[in-house]
């Protein structure tokens, strides 16, 4: 079916199958930042924002984003770049496979929580798995980024 939606501020028409997942539809449209790291909705790599809310694109049927605002990391490139520099400086990025989904969640948290405590940061990010970093570098980077932002 055809749906009208907005991706990163641009109105577009998407042709999607009834059972197509948003992650597949976005990748087919060239948004290659969307990664699929699991089959069980538990890694967070596919996180995009739907109407500003961080959401698993691997668990969302594509037709359901009709008339919604989708944001991928390509749509928040400048903020993502700023945070990515802090990540690199803290040695918190290794293979980088988890980074787009992780960064989208961190930026969503920044919008949603005011001055989060360390516990709140950890809780907000439990849905983003990273097989490389061991999380401590990521936590340092987030605190530095929020403190300095």
């Amino acid at each position: 079916m055809q749906i009208e939606t907005t991706i990163n501020g641009k109105k577009i028409t998407l042709e999607v199958a009834n059972d197509e997942l948003l992650s597949d539809a976005l990748r087919a449209k060239g948004y290659l930042s969307i990664r699929q790291g699991c089959d069980t909705s538990c890694c967070g790599l596919c996180t995009v924002w739907i109407d500003g809310k961080p959401t698993l694109s691997c668990s969302t049927l594509a037709f359901r984003v009709r008339d919604k605002q989708i944001t991928t990391i390509e749509g928040v490139a400048q903020q993502a770049e700023e945070f990515a520099q802090v990540l690199v400086a803290e040695g918190a990025e290794q293979c980088g496979f988890c980074s787009p989904g992780f960064i989208m969640t961190v930026l969503a948290m920044k919008h949603e929580l005011k001055n989060p405590t360390e516990q709140e940061i950890i809780h907000y990010l439990t849905g983003n798995l990273c097989r490389c970093t061991g999380y401590m570098g990521q936590l340092r980077a987030i605190k530095k980024y929020l403190g300095g932002a």
């Binding site: 739907i50 809310k53 961080p54 668990s59 969302t60 948290m109």
Partner: peptide
């Protein structure tokens, strides 16, 4: 799971 799951 996580926030983005609970939004689904």
């Amino acid at each position: 799971i996580g926030v983005q799951f609970r939004n689904v």
